[in-house]
Every structure is written in C-alpha cells, then in structure tokens.
C-alpha cells in the first residue's frame, strides 16, 4: 500500500525535487491528464510532455512565491495540464471538443500562464545550451557564475584572457542563433516578428 501524503507534503517534495514524491504524484495524477490529452487528439508522448510541463509550473510557483493550493494538487495539475494542452492544440491548429464555448482558464491565474510561457522559454534555451560543445558550455557557465576570467583561461587552457572572451561571445552567438532558428522558438510566438531575423543593428 502506498503511503498517503498530504498536499502540503507533496508540494514540499516537489520543491526539494524528491524523486519518491514525484513517483507518487505520477501515480495519482498522470491518468486523468493522460485521459484528457488522449481523448483530445493527443498521443501518449503528448500526455507525458503535458504532465511534465504541468509539474514544472508547480515547481516554479513553489520556488518563486508563497504558493497555496485552492484545490487538491491533482485538480490543480489537471487544470494546468488542460491549459497546456489547449495551447498546444492551438499551435497545431486543432480545435478540441472541450475548448468550444468554455473559459480557458479554470483553477489557474494569469500568473500561471506567464509561468507557463517562462517555463517553455527556459526549456528551449536550456535544451539548446545543452546541445553546445562541452567547452562552450563550460565557458558560458563559468562566466555566468562570476568566475574570474583569469581562472577561466587557466581552467580551459586558453592562450590569453582575450581568447577566452572571444570564445565566450562566439559560443553565445552560436547559442542565440540556434535558439532563433529552432521551430520551437517560432512556436513560442516569435515567428511573426518581422524584425526578429537576427542580431539587431543600431
């Protein structure tokens, strides 16, 4: 018999990235989300992605504010999942049965939608970062956590600080280009920005 957790315990578990709690949440919350997605033009993989994104929204909320549930965690996750799936269907230009005539926001707030958008952006940025070469990743990361340039040059075995700097900017340029050229970036709503064709000049 699985241990029963209160919603507060589940939220705390999400906050500390506890895999046991995440497994439990999967057990209690995945099936309704799967049902929602699969009965509205989705596949198993879609359901898994939606479940993941809904949990990420909760994780960000817990971290960024004093998050209080107004319903059970399962209900809240279901509501967030619903918004995620509606947005995805809109992107795919599919109209689901359950969208028609219905308020899009149920149990969720504007801040949830903002978090969702932020989460989608961060996911893309991070994925593209992970695709860079190991050297690029190291250099960019070290700069961002404020390691002195001299130390970075020494760690990476580069010939000079200027070389390290140049490497940093080249890596960042590659990363930004890879982000801009991805289809996910266009899906995030940037494709209609006519100015958004490269680095701006001024």
């Amino acid at each position: 018999m699985n241990k029963k957790y209160s919603d507060q315990e589940l939220l705390e578990g999400i906050g500390r990235n506890d895999i046991k709690i995440l497994n439990h949440i999967y057990d209690i919350s995945y099936r309704p989300i799967r049902y929602l997605v699969i009965s509205n033009n989705g596949k198993e993989q879609d359901a898994e992605d939606v479940f993941q994104e809904a949990l990420v929204v909760v994780f960000i909320k817990i971290r960024e504010e004093n998050f209080q549930l107004s319903s059970s965690l399962t209900t809240y996750l279901y509501s967030v999942a619903r918004i995620i799936w509606i947005r995805e269907l809109n992107n795919r230009k599919v109209r689901a049965e359950f969208i028609e005539g219905e308020q899009l926001v149920l149990n969720t707030t504007d801040s949830d939608i903002e978090l969702l958008e932020e989460s989608e952006r961060y996911k893309l940025y991070r994925e593209k970062f992970e695709e860079l070469s190991e050297d690029c990743k190291k250099v960019l990361k070290m700069f961002l956590i404020n390691i002195p340039i001299k130390d970075i040059t020494a760690i990476m075995g580069y010939s000079s600080d200027q070389h390290t700097k140049n490497r940093r900017f080249r890596c960042k340029k590659t990363l930004i280009n890879n982000i801009r050229n991805s289809k996910e970036y266009k899906k995030l709503g940037y494709e209609n920005n006519s100015n958004d064709r490269g680095i701006p000049r001024w």
Binding site: N17, F59, R63, R121, Y122, R126, K141, L144, L175, I179
Partner: peptide, 13 residues
C-alpha cells in the same frame, strides 16, 4: 537565456 543557463535546479527537476 543567461537565467535559463544558470537555473540548474529547474533543469535537474
């Protein structure tokens, strides 16, 4: 993008 790179906790989650 810099924020996303720094956010290891979210990535691990």
């Amino acid at each position: 993008v810099n924020e996303a790179i720094k956010d290891d906790a979210l990535y691990e989650f």
